[in-house]
């Protein structure tokens, strides 16, 4: 993917740049707000990673200007201001995701991955998802594996749905929390893990191959036996 990285802190930029390249992305880096606006308007990027605080032109201004000009390139906002209201402001200005500094590289990569596939991937109108022998009926809220019906609570169903919609990609704990509980907060506990492990017991335990995998230190991935 062709990514524009807008970040003024040299060490931070180097770190993100390296991480993105290692994940196979092509990265262009600018440190100045005005130049960033110029580059973003000039070239076609698949995604923009935008620091909130920049010299000359503020990150929010860049974002608003881009959106006002009809540019809909996905934007991930990075900010040391991790507060809920800041996050809401960022998303309202047209950001697609918001990540508070400091963050783990894996978290950023996972979010970029999900954003990149949002467009042409599984459409929101899809009524059925199937991964390997797992079938999810989104309308009837039913889950079958190998033809056998699995009973899930509402919450478990939503976790599974979110993992399935992003099948093959890593979903981090905070992404799950935001998508399934729809609250932005800091759990400070391993409570999400407990939910996933309960889901796993129902979806994976009695079937030979596991579908839900833990990515150590990052999150979870739902993957068919063949994938």
């Amino acid at each position: 993917m062709h990514i524009l990285l807008i970040e003024d802190d040299a060490r931070m930029a180097q770190h993100i740049d390296k991480g993105l390249r290692e994940a196979g992305h092509v990265v262009e880096h600018v440190a100045d707000g005005r130049e960033a606006l110029f580059r973003a308007a000039g070239d076609a990027f698949d995604l923009i990673v935008l620091d909130r605080m920049l010299p000359n032109v503020d990150g929010m201004t860049i974002l608003k200007t881009l959106r006002a000009s009809g540019d809909s390139t996905p934007v991930v906002i990075l900010s040391a201001l991790g507060e809920v209201d800041e996050r809401v402001k960022g998303l309202r200005a047209g950001g697609d995701d918001y990540l508070a500094k400091p963050f783990a590289m894996s978290e950023l990569l996972a979010r970029i991955d999900v954003l990149a596939r949002r467009g042409p991937g599984i459409s929101a109108e899809a009524t059925r998802l199937s991964i390997g022998d797992l079938e999810i009926d989104l309308l009837g809220r039913q889950v079958r594996r190998g033809g056998q019906r699995i009973e899930l609570t509402t919450r478990e169903f939503r976790i599974l749905e979110h993992l399935a919609r992003n099948a093959g990609r890593v979903v981090t704990r905070s992404m799950l929390l935001e998508a399934v509980w729809e609250y932005h907060f800091d759990p400070q506990t391993n409570i999400i893990d407990q939910h996933v492990s309960r889901l796993r017991q129902k979806v994976d335990r009695d079937f030979g191959a596991s579908l839900i995998h833990t990515v150590r230190g990052v999150g979870y991935i739902l993957r068919g036996a063949d994938g």
Partner: peptide, 30 residues
Amino acid sequence: DEAIAEASRLQSIFSALLRIARIESGRHGV
């Protein structure tokens, strides 16, 4: 892993402190 875990523990203490301070000072903007 331990070093990273320690750093993220520090980070979460900091964010909790900042959050409390922001809420207390009314600067939270909610």
